[in-house]
Design a protein around this nucleic acid. Structure first.
Lengths: 249, 249
DNA sequence: CGCGTGACTTGATCTGGATCAAGGTGGCGC
DNA sequence: GCGCCACCTTGATCCAGATCAAGTCACGCG
């Protein structure tokens, strides 16, 4: 498949006369990520070169090695980015959600694959057209540099995790980090609704499914987390979780 | 120590009337990295806000957690970037040489440490002043975005290595990658003059010194490389080395 | 409903790389 | 020259996490 995205359901973004573009108005990412760098008028221009795309759960939408024609900005849902070895070993390099930008780590071709963990909606931008956007709105380019810097920090943190942390430390780091993203507190405990499977977690943390399971069991026995059904994990002792993740205790 | 660089030997870059700035003329990085994005006249402006700094071998010049006041551009020599855990475990996140830019992975404070592996010369730029440079030369900013993108690709490659590759695959990947950087061929064999110790290698590849030693022995016994004295390694069978590093064989 | 399937957990065993231990080698200061 | 020390190698043993195996649970489907 030469260009995965080509066969997906897509629709041009409707642009109304004044105010915020129609589809931007209800976009989860309107006030985070790239679009937040723009005023309403500028947003129209950006929307005019965007294509809204829906991707069903489990569907891949970037294939490593394919020519990198598009950038993506996620509006809704979560996806995983990964790199594979010829024999099937896979390393998930990141999970991306609303407001996140996909496509920086590419030159002529994509250097990673991407797949939706849940139904995903995203805006797709043609790389060539984005050059024009940069010229017109330097703010976008600056923001992109900030995004890239931030991703570099995250990547280095992940190298430390993969190279030097124990299984329990890795799982604790992950839960701690994810907790910061989507903090929805309930009676003192933070409840995480993870979109990924144990297998995804294993491929992200450089471990196996069984080890993830055992590490979670360890944290549960220590009273740090509660493991519920259906990818729900509650953080009972956030301070302890952080300490374990940073290898401080 | 609040600001490591403060106590180092430094000199303002001399700017001559016409042509290329004096110190840029003999700079190893003049035609790679950032400065290549500029014309001679523009280079004068950049040089006027730069400070030349010399760092002796083994000396740290960035401390994680210190306020990030400067960007650096390496002119000569090699340095390691790293992140530490409280108990002393260290992950080297990268080696940087002439033309490489240091300081992208920072927000208010540096999120990594840096130390010279050999005598290093670099240009130091004040972050605040660099804002002005960006405004004047958008080319610099664009180039910086390219650099960041490239570093992201490298970082994801490294995550794959740390999360999924075996010891021998890691060492082969490293040697293969380093070979591409500094290809100096001699009678068919590429001769690598590594600036780092086995211990640095171990901290970069998520292994121990002993394992590095054993992996090199394995590659040597297979006739893929020759291990010489004083950090010299010759690549005897480049194709095989690449195949092992990519887990294709 | 019974059956198949995919996600998860838990237990038993195995193993790649860590750890512990013992040299070897070369540079450098005295 | 001699001793020290940093760096590297090789061998023996250990162990965290992988692999193999078995079973639970929830869910969709004929």
């Amino acid at each position: 498949m030469q260009n995965t995205i080509g066969s997906l359901r897509r629709a041009p973004v409707n642009v109304v006369a004044g105010g915020v573009p129609e589809l931007c108005a209800q976009c989860d990412a309107r006030h985070i990520g790239l679009c937040d760098a723009l005023h309403d008028d500028d947003l129209h221009f950006l929307a005019s070169v965007a294509q809204q795309v829906s991707i069903e759960k489990g569907r891949g939408f970037v294939t490593e090695g394919d020519p990198a024609r598009q950038f993506f900005n996620i509006n809704h849902g979560t996806a995983k980015l990964f790199k594979d070895l010829p024999d099937g070993r896979r390393q998930i390099t990141g999970f991306v959600g609303a407001g996140d930008f996909i496509g920086l780590a590419a030159n002529a071709t994509y250097m990673f694959g991407a797949e939706a963990l849940e139904p995903v909606q995203l805006c797709s931008f043609d790389r060539a057209e984005l050059r024009a956007v940069f010229a017109r709105f330097p703010a976008i380019e600056r923001r992109l540099l900030d995004v890239a810097s931030h991703e570099l920090i995250i990547a280095q943190e992940q190298m430390l995790l993969l190279g030097r942390k124990t299984a329990v430390e890795r799982v604790a780091s992950f839960l701690d980090g994810w907790g910061l993203r989507v903090a929805s507190c309930q009676g003192g405990a933070t409840r995480l609704d993870l979109p990924m499977t144990r297998n995804d977690l294993a491929e992200y943390l450089g471990l196996t499914v069984e080890t993830i399971s055992r590490a979670l069991a360890t944290l549960r026995k220590q009273g740090v987390v509660a493991v519920g059904a259906d990818h729900v994990i509650s953080i009972l002792n956030p301070a302890r979780l952080t300490a374990i993740g940073q290898a401080e205790g």
